[in-house]
């Protein structure tokens, strides 16, 4: 009966994109037609989750400028990826604003030309010999995380005749439990492709799109080095019920 005096704020399913969103064509055959079965009584199955504090991170796991190089002999700027250098950082908090420390944040992205280092990506834009496109880190005591990378390029994809993804970074966060597990995408403030994207449009509320927008933070940008984009992640709030179970 571990942790059973805990609950999470109910997930608002109208805020998240619906499973069936025909403007995003792949969702049509991949969305359940039956209703979800609601679990009325939470149990440890949902209220617990993995704690990754002991997962050993490599030195450059959160530094995409440094963590991939086809030719390890390349040094200096010859060994760095092409594109706009950025720092992506933010805080993981719950819906009450409480920081979520020591939680795993993972991210992946296309290179500056919009090409992913994935067997299945055949876009015209070339691979970058100095860019892999994957990062991970644990949040610190106050819930902060940070990555150094390049700004990904937009890329075309088959949906409508001429669909383009806005520049985005895929972000995965565990949070304290299976109930808080979330995968999202960070978009870049001011990108004109955001409102045109069928995947962004799976969201019905423009305010929900705001929660996925990284904002330019000049104060944290490094002169003569990189711009900074802040992206806070909000996971479901944890409620203590204060009742003893019999």
């Amino acid at each position: 009966m571990q942790n059973d005096n805990k609950r999470f704020v109910e997930r608002d399913r109208d805020w998240h994109p619906p499973a069936y969103a025909p403007g995003y064509k792949t969702s049509v055959a991949r969305s359940p037609s039956q209703s979800l079965v609601s679990l009325q009584t939470p149990s440890a199955s949902e209220l617990t989750g993995p704690d990754f504090r002991r997962l050993r991170m490599g030195r450059y796991d959160n530094d995409l400028l440094m963590n991939f190089r086809e030719d390890p002999a390349l040094a200096g700027s010859a060994g760095l990826p092409a594109g706009e250098r950025i720092m992506m950082f933010g805080r993981v908090v719950d819906q009450f604003g409480k920081p979520v420390p020591h939680t795993l944040v993972e991210m992946w992205q296309a290179n500056a030309g919009g090409r992913y280092r994935h067997k299945k990506d055949g876009y015209l834009a070339p691979l970058d010999p100095n860019f892999g496109g994957v990062g991970r880190c644990l949040t610190d005591e106050q819930g902060w995380y940070r990555f150094r990378t390049v700004k990904p390029g937009p890329y075309p994809w088959p949906n409508d005749v001429n669909s383009w993804r806005p520049a985005h970074i895929h972000v995965s966060v565990m949070g304290p439990a299976i109930s808080t597990r979330l995968i999202t995408q960070m978009y870049f403030e001011g990108d004109p492709l955001i409102p045109l994207c069928p995947i962004v449009q799976t969201l019905r509320d423009p305010e929900a799109v705001e929660t996925m927008t990284g904002r330019l933070d000049m104060a944290r940008s490094r002169p003569m080095d990189c711009l900074a984009y802040r992206f806070d992640l909000v996971v479901r709030g944890e409620l203590q019920t204060y009742f003893e179970n019999q």
């Binding site: 719950d94 819906q95 995968i183 999202t184």
Partner: peptide, 15 residues
């Protein structure tokens, strides 16, 4: 606070 909205993990989730 509103929960950060979900988006598909996409075709390249493996990266």
């Amino acid at each position: 606070l509103r929960e950060t909205a979900s988006q598909t993990a996409g075709p390249y989730v493996h990266i």
